[in-house]
């Protein structure tokens, strides 16, 4: 009997020893990854200062629908808006909604650009939406988004 009790207690102890660390790990799991990690909604709030960005067809976002390699995803943003001294596109922001750091780039333009266009290549960790936000000189924000299916993630 004594031996049986001893084994039982050992079994329970071992089981609890397994359970407790895994539970505490699960509690810590939603910790953001990386120093610059910022969720998309927070990042958008920082850029627009709490204003609402309107979905607009004037913002043309070109991203592939299926990206085989998430490490290199070409992105092109064009904004159909005049670039005169008094009325121009002030900035273009690009976000990847599910990356650890959702911010990709903020481009601050001036009338000397002639046309509001910006292109680069970004990394996508998983299948997600890419969002482009254009800030006009009169303080309004326009946005466009497109979902991109990623076969191999690129944010190791």
């Amino acid at each position: 009997m004594q031996r049986r009790d001893f084994l039982k207690s050992l079994g329970v102890g071992a089981a609890s020893a397994v359970v407790i660390p895994s539970m505490s790990f699960a509690a810590e799991a939603p910790k953001p990854r990386g120093k610059n990690a910022l969720a998309y909604n927070d990042a958008l709030g920082v850029a627009t200062g709490g204003k609402k960005a309107e979905v607009s067809a004037k913002v043309k976002l070109k991203v592939p629908e299926i990206a085989e390699n998430g490490a290199v995803v070409p992105v092109t943003v064009e904004v159909e808006h005049p670039m005169s001294e008094s009325d121009y596109v002030k900035a273009i922001h690009v976000y990847a909604t599910k990356n650890a750091n959702s911010r990709c780039i903020g481009v601050h333009l001036s009338p000397a650009n002639g046309e509001a266009m910006f292109a680069t290549r970004i990394k996508l960790g998983e299948t997600q939406e890419v969002v482009a936000v254009a800030e006009l000189s009169n303080g309004t924000f326009l946005m466009a988004s497109q979902s991109v299916k990623v076969t191999i993630g690129g944010c190791g």
């Binding site: 990386g34 610059n36 490490a71 290199v72 995803v73 092109t76 990847a96 990356n99 750091n101 959702s102 911010r103 990709c104 780039i105 903020g106 481009v107 601050h108 333009l109 001036s110 000397a112 650009n113 002639g114 046309e115 509001a116 266009m117 910006f118 292109a119 680069t120 290549r121 970004i122 990394k123 690129g154 944010c155």
Partner: peptide
Amino acid sequence: EYNGKVITTMNVWETLSVNPVFTINMKVD
């Protein structure tokens, strides 16, 4: 900078690809 005048600035984050490319338009003056 074009002839000493700043035309475009960018805030960049680590989410851009390796060996990045930045493409913009510019009016030749």
